[in-house]
């Protein structure tokens, strides 16, 4: 019994370390300058469209609604203290520091991350990755690197767009519906939002989230068991692991930045 437990523990340990090693090699492969120069650029542009542009609709709509809800909740709280003029400040800081990077990262993991895992898993199952290898073309350069860099570039931009539309949503509800003074809304926001403390930290967070989500998505796809069940498991695992990683990292980054 004890031997069996030890054996299973040992096996789990070996599997974990092997998996981590493979994930590390994949990250190195994606980061390494490929030397493909001009051939890399069209691949990157295509992936920027697939990963970034195609995620825009969900990001814009979610940003608008989150901003509107924030504004409604914030107004009902602030009006009790007669501080409803600070609504713009509250909406902007909540979005720029926390909700923008975190919610856009969660949405990105669900939309683009799962799609990346499924796509690469299917390419593996249909031997497309093997056929690239046999054509003397490194899948790391052709498939993994463009998707990795596209994720890295897209998410911070999507996060900025999310926050911008969130503020717009907050304005729609706070100013146009609830009657907060538009001058106060924008002026107090402008006075209280700091580039380093609020905007740069938010961007830094979304960059870290972008690396983690894209890395997890690509690794899960590349390492997927090449069957329909294996790809389905890998896709689910991407969303769950990436979402939890984003929330955990958000806490750590917030503690490091603001404590």
């Amino acid at each position: 019994m004890l031997t069996k437990t030890l054996l299973s523990l040992g096996n789990s340990g070996i599997n974990f370390i092997t998996g981590a090693g493979r994930a590390g090699m994949l990250l190195l492969g994606a980061l390494k300058p490929s030397g493909r120069g001009v051939k890399f650029f069209p691949l990157l542009v295509k992936q920027l469209y697939v990963v970034g542009v195609q995620s825009l609709v969900i990001i814009v709509i979610a940003g608008l609604f989150i901003g509107m809800v924030l504004s409604l909740q914030g107004y009902s709280l602030l009006v009790g203290f007669g501080a409803e003029q600070s609504l713009g400040q509250m909406v902007a800081l909540s979005l720029l520091r926390e909700l923008g990077p975190v919610v856009s990262a969660l949405l990105f993991a669900g939309r683009a991350g799962s799609a990346l895992t499924a796509e690469i898993g299917l390419m593996k199952a249909t031997e497309q990755l093997s056929s690239l290898e046999m054509m003397a073309i490194d899948p790391m350069h052709q498939i993994i690197a463009p998707r990795f860099w596209a994720g890295l570039i897209s998410l911070p931009l999507l996060s900025a767009i999310f926050s911008a539309f969130g503020i717009l949503g907050g304005h729609l509800v706070g100013v146009d519906w609830l009657g907060v003074d538009t001058g106060a809304f924008w002026a107090i926001m402008q006075a209280s939002v700091d580039w380093n403390q609020d905007i740069a930290t938010g961007l830094l967070k979304s960059m870290v989230f972008a690396v983690v989500i894209t890395w997890i998505a690509l690794h899960k796809g590349y390492d997927a068991v090449p069957t329909s069940e294996g790809i389905s498991k890998a896709t689910t695992s991407t969303v769950v692991t990436a979402s939890l990683a984003v929330l955990g990292l958000d806490f750590i980054l917030t503690a490091l930045m603001f404590s």
Partner: peptide, 19 residues
Amino acid sequence: LFKMRRKMGMLFQSGALFT
């Protein structure tokens, strides 16, 4: 190895065409 593979071709069972 990549240099050698440029002299090889392989027809996979599934065809493995890029969809």
